[in-house]
Structure formats: C-alpha cells, structure tokens
C-alpha cells in the first residue's frame, strides 16, 4: 500500500528537515515522496474517486517542505513549481482540509518572488486569489506594502523594510528584490539629479563602499552602451556625477512618415 510507505518516508523527511537538514538528503527523500504521492488515489487524475484527507495532508506538507528547501537552496524555479502545485491544496481543497499554518508564509514568499522578478501583473493576479480576511496577516501585509511603496517610488521605505523582515525565510527574496530596486533607483537618480554626494548615492543604491559604487557605475555605463541608449554617463569623482552625452536633436523619422502617408493613400484609394 502506497500510503503506509509514504507515511514512513514522510516522517523521515520531517525529521530530516527539522533536524540536521542536509539539503541533498532532503532532496532525495523529497523525490521519493513525490513518486509516492503521484500514486495516491486522491491525487490521481481523472477526478479522485474518494478524497482521503490524510493523503492530501501528507501531499500538502511534503510540497511545503519542498518549497522551503528550494528557498534554502536558492532555487527559484523549483520554488515556483512547488507553489503552483500547492495552490491546488490551498484553494481547491480549502473546504476539505484544515488551513495549513505554513500557507501564508509560502504565499507571502511567492508574492515577494513575483515582486522581485518585476512580475507585477502576476503579483496582482495572485493577490486577488487570496481571500481578503487573510490579507491582514503580517506575512502578507509585508509584500503588499512593499508593492505599494515600489509603485509610489518610495524607495526609502523599501530600504528600511530590508532591515525588518517579518520572517527569516523572506530575506532571500528581499536580496533579490534589492537588486531589482537598485536598477530602478539608478534610473531615477540619473534623470533627476545633476550630481549627488557619494554618501547619499551609496545609501540610495544600497551599496557598501565607494569601490562597489565605482563598479556599479561602470556596469551601468556598459549596459547602456550595449543597449544603444547612451544618454547619461556615470562618473565617480568627489561626487557621483551624471554627464549628459550629447545626442542629436530628435528628428522626425522620414521612413515612418513615408509609411504612414503611403498607408493613407492606399486606404483612400480603397474608399474612392
């Protein structure tokens, strides 16, 4: 019987995760578990003949460990896969199963992940799925507030948020978010300031030393050169200066104009 087997394996996994937590060992156990879960009559497709709560709970908790492990392992893609599988248990079986205490943590992490990957559209789609009474939970409030600050451009608050993350698990995604935010801040800085002092630039860009800043400025210059939109050059002297690179005045593109005019002519021809 697959279930008895699974229970045994599951206990091993739980012990390993809560105890020594050797990532490789856990992964091996997880893989075995996943094979066993796939054979559960409650999980199999087409629609389960009978829903066994026990089986579903085991499946759910296994996947949750999987998600946590992926975060610990810094494997974003596998984290995403686990969450997608978990969503079935969180939403579709919400009547049959008692809510999981890890649910909000995982959903919060997922929201942060979407935010840090700059997938704001999906962030909102996901948020709409979460019942409004759960949204006041601190684990979910955190990403929601962050999104609001990002949208407003209140990067100051984002920087502050980095120091009071509600859960240790979040910090991995926070680090990713910071690097996304850094590029946004950089774009704002170069547009809004002629020059800023080094200390402020370091704080705004969340960098530690002047060396880091120099390296970052270098990479910014290079990136823009490659993209062909090289209008502002970063220079680190006593201050961080943004120098306008001379560009030609915007010209009216003649080919575009040509295309338009010819298109009008064809359309008019058709009408007359």
């Amino acid at each position: 019987m697959a279930t008895a087997d699974a229970v045994q394996k599951f206990n091993m996994l739980r012990e390993e995760y809560n105890g020594a937590c050797d990532i490789n060992k856990c992964k091996a156990l997880l893989n075995e578990m996943k094979v066993l879960i796939a054979q559960f009559p409650s999980v199999a497709l087409p629609p389960p003949s009978e829903v066994s709560q026990k089986e579903l709970l085991i499946a759910r908790e296994t996947l949750e460990y999987g998600a946590f492990l992926s975060v610990r392992n810094e494997d974003v893609q596998s984290f995403e896969r686990y969450v997608v599988q978990l969503k079935m248990y969180y939403y579709d079986y919400s009547k049959e199963l008692p809510p999981s205490q890890r649910q909000l943590i995982i959903l919060g992490m997922y929201l942060l992940h979407l935010l840090s990957s700059n997938r704001i559209g999906e962030f909102h789609t996901e948020l709409e799925l979460i019942p409004s009474e759960l949204r006041s939970n601190v684990n979910l409030k955190f990403p929601v507030a962050l999104e609001q600050h990002l949208m407003d451009g209140n990067y100051n608050k984002v920087i502050n948020a980095k120091t009071n993350v509600p859960l240790p698990q979040y910090s991995f995604f926070m680090d990713r978010l910071v690097s996304t935010v850094r590029h946004k801040v950089a774009a704002c800085l170069e547009k809004s300031y002629p020059s800023v002092d080094i200390a402020f630039a370091l704080r705004a860009l969340m960098l530690d030393t002047e060396e880091d800043l120099k390296r970052f400025a270098e990479s910014e210059n290079q990136r823009k050169q490659e993209q062909g939109a090289f209008e502002i050059r970063w220079e680190v002297k006593e201050r961080l200066e943004f120098q306008q690179v001379m560009t030609q005045k915007p010209e009216i593109s003649s080919t575009e104009l040509l295309h338009h005019t010819i298109a009008y002519a064809t359309e008019l021809e058709r009408i007359v």
Partner: peptide
C-alpha cells in the same frame, strides 16, 4: 501627506523618471 522628506525625494525622482513632471532635485 508623506512621512518624511526622504520619502518625497524618492517619489519625486520616480515622477521625473516617468515623465510626470519636468524637474531636477538638488540633494545637498
């Protein structure tokens, strides 16, 4: 109605970037 000048600085910066306003900031 924002909390601090530092908040305002970031928001103004973003507005400039988005082309909402034409301005520049002097941080000093």
């Amino acid at each position: 109605g924002l909390d601090s000048a530092a908040d305002a600085e970031g928001i103004v910066g973003k507005a400039i970037l988005d082309g909402v306003i034409e301005a520049s900031i002097d941080h000093d």
